[in-house]
Each structure stands twice: as structure tokens, then as C-alpha cells.
Design a binder for these strands. Structure first.
Lengths: 197, 197
DNA sequence: ACTTTTTTGTAGTGATAGCTTCAAAACCAT
DNA sequence: ATGGTTTTGAAGCTATCACTACAAAAAAGT
């Protein structure tokens, strides 16, 4: 019924995501957001309720769109080392892509803060846990499917890779070049299988 | 000459460090600092000039005090894998220690921000680069001293470990327990030498 | 045309940010 | 004591924060 929206919701979320991704949650003000969206703050609050809620929607959008590297590895039924190498490389390509802000949006927006003292960190907690779960699933399946001996249990390797992904994001932020990063992905992938290369 | 300081400078820096470490640079206000130090803001500005300068001093203090794990590994002349394992474990113990805020102060205080849009991140850049330089030196010496074949050049492994340390800090923040973290250190250490375990 | 419903732009809310002003206070030297 | 020097505490500065009140604007239903 009423007056139509100036900006479709999905488009607004995408723009907001990129701002949070680039500047972080704390350093992105509602004024920044409404300027980037080209609407007044009242529109923003009418549509999303609060800065926190808009952030939650943005991170949900990110998780659904930019963490598909795990699914890609699952679909291809590779051995453990190849799967991990591919997954890390693909994630790193996203982190270093010129088409989106540098690094991982979950890390960049919520910073290094603990869920206790940052609203944003609490919101990203679930996303990080879900990624780790899917990583464990991937490793377990790849190991069983190819009979590859692992250097540690799947759940632990998933946590290791979770940390590795965060590290890669940080290295991108500090200006590491893509060639170095790809080599680092290979080193990290090698760590997952027992006695390789 | 004049009136004596209520709080010695070194003590003030240590208290400030712990606040920045725990809350992050942005979320730590001058009011927080002056409350923790038990002095008015004018004393703080008289002694340090600005919040930024106090932060710089705090991070210098941290770098000198809490990154000695590299020197410890250098002194003991271990082989590459043992040196890296020990260094990662020691760093993780600091990150998870109940005597200091969780995680790495450089990460926690400057967050995941890029040096371009955060004063704090720019200040920590040099510390991170110095750590990486010393890591490369350690790996090179350990490799030469024991004739261990590396999985990649020392500088690249140093960057890998730099990322790994950041990842470990983040895993601590998200509540990983010490046993898991130690096992992750071992996995990461194994990745540095050619064809181990 | 008129009512209803929703969104919009403008202006402004109290709270808090980093930082400064300035006189009183606390020391040393004479 | 007195004068010189530095630090301290209290109050206040401007700017910005997330957020809201309110009425005009733009659609749909009748």
C-alpha cells in the first residue's frame, strides 16, 4: 500500500554490508550509512529498526553469499589436502578481491572484540561457529572418501582452519600480496594431512 | 622540581595497556582511562599529550614485554619444528593467560582495522612487521643450524606464522580451550618443515 | 476526490566523545 | 617564608554518537 521505498531492501543491505566491511561496525555511523544509502536516518530506522539490526541482516547476507567456498570444496569430492588448499585459496581471493573491501567481512566489521563488550562481535559469533562446523564436515568426508590419514581430528583441524582464515584476512589487510598468500594457503593445507610433502 | 606525580609513568602505561588490550582502542574512552588511573583527564594530557600518544607508549611497552617468545626460541637453538611449536605455544599461553586480558594486545586493541582508517592500526603496523622479521630470522637460523629442509622460504613461513599467531589470538577470544589451542600449535608447527610427522 | 497506509526529509533529542582552560595544590630552591 | 615550577581537579568546550518526533509526500482502496 503506502508510499514506495526509495531503495529496495536487498540493495540497502548490500551497501550497508560494504560499509561495515570497509570501516568496521563501530566506526560506521548511522550518518555514514544514511549518506551511502541516499536516504535520511528515519528511513533506515523505519526499515531496519536499529543499526544493530541492519548489521545483523548485512552479516547474514555476507554469510550466505561469501562463504560458499566450503560448499564448492564439498561438491568436488577432492582429497583432504586439495580440498583445503582450494578452499583457502578461494577464500583468500575474496579477501583480496578489488571488487569488495579487503579482508573477511566478519573479521573486519566485528573487529577483534570479544562478544562480551561488542554488539557486533556477538552477532558474528554464530556465523563463525557455523563455518567451523562446515569445515569439520568437509574434512571428515574428504578423509573418509579418500582414506587420507589426518594430522589431527577433523574438529581440531576445522578450528585450525578457522584460525588460519582469520590470519589470512589479517595478512590481506596489512598488504600482503596475492602470490605470497597463495603459497601460505599451500603451507596451511599441507599441515592437515599426516606426513605429506 | 614542581608537584610530584600521583602515579608513576610506567605504572600508568601498564594500566592503560591493559585497558586498551581488554576493550580495544576505540571503545576505550579518555574518561575510562582517567578513571582507571585515578586521575583527572588533565593529568593524562599533561603527561602523554593525547590518547594516541598514550596508546603508542602502551603498545611499545607490550612489544618489549610480551613478544619475548621469539627470543626464547632463538636462545635455545632448537630445530625448526620444535622452535616454532614452542614459540606458538608460549604465545598462546600469553593470549590465554588469566593474568592479562585475552588475546594479543596488538590485535585486540587495534582490532581488524586497516592502517588507513584507524589511528591505532597505524601505530601497531611497525610492531607486526618487526615480529615478522624476527620470525624469519629464527626460522632461517634454526634451519641452517640443524640442516632441516623447510616447506617454504623463511620469509614466507614467517608471514604464515604471523597469520597463525593472529588466528590463535582470535580463537582465544572466541573461547577455545587451552588443550585445543596447544594441539593447533603442533599442527601449525608441523607445516613449516618438509614432510614431517 | 477522499481516506488509509507507509515512507520520506527535516530538525532536534540527550549522551558521550576527545580535549582544553585555569586556578589551587604540592613540591624544590633560596 | 617566598618565588618558581609542575601537576592536579573541576568545569566546560565543540563535535559527533545512535536515535526519534512530526508532518509532508506518495502510493492504494473506495
Amino acid at each position: 500500500m503506502g508510499r514506495p521505498r526509495k531503495l529496495p531492501e536487498t540493495e540497502a543491505i548490500d551497501i550497508a554490508l560494504r560499509l561495515f566491511w570497509k570501516q568496521g561496525y563501530d566506526r560506521t555511523s548511522v550518518a555514514d550509512l544514511s549518506a551511502a544509502l541516499g536516504v535520511g536516518p528515519s528511513s533506515l530506522y523505519n526499515a531496519f529498526g536499529s543499526k544493530q539490526e541492519l548489521f545483523r541482516r548485512a552479516i547474514e547476507h555476507y554469510a550466505a553469499t561469501y562463504t560458499t567456498f566450503i560448499d564448492h570444496a564439498l561438491e568436488r569430492d577432492l582429497d583432504v589436502e586439495a580440498a583445503v588448499r582450494g578452499l583457502l585459496r578461494e577464500a583468500t581471493m575474496v579477501y583480496a578481491s578489488p571488487d569488495s573491501p579487503p579482508g573477511c567481512a566478519v573479521m573486519q566489521s566485528a573487529g577483534a572484540a570479544s562478544p562480551d563488550d561488542s554488539e557486533a562481535a556477538a552477532i558474528t559469533l554464530e556465523v563463525k561457529a557455523e563455518v567451523e562446523r562446515r569445515l569439520a564436515l568437509l574434512i571428515e568426508r574428504a578423509s573418509e572418501s579418500h582414506g587420507t590419514p589426518l594430522s589431527a581430528p577433523p574438529k581440531l583441524l576445522a578450528k585450525y582452519l578457522n584460525g588460519t582464515l582469520r590470519g589470512l584476512s589479517q595478512l590481506v589487510i596489512d598488504g600482503a600480496d596475492l602470490e605470497e598468500l597463495m603459497a601460505i594457503c599451500d603451507v596451511a593445507a599441507g599441515a592437515c594431512v599426516a606426513g605429506s610433502t
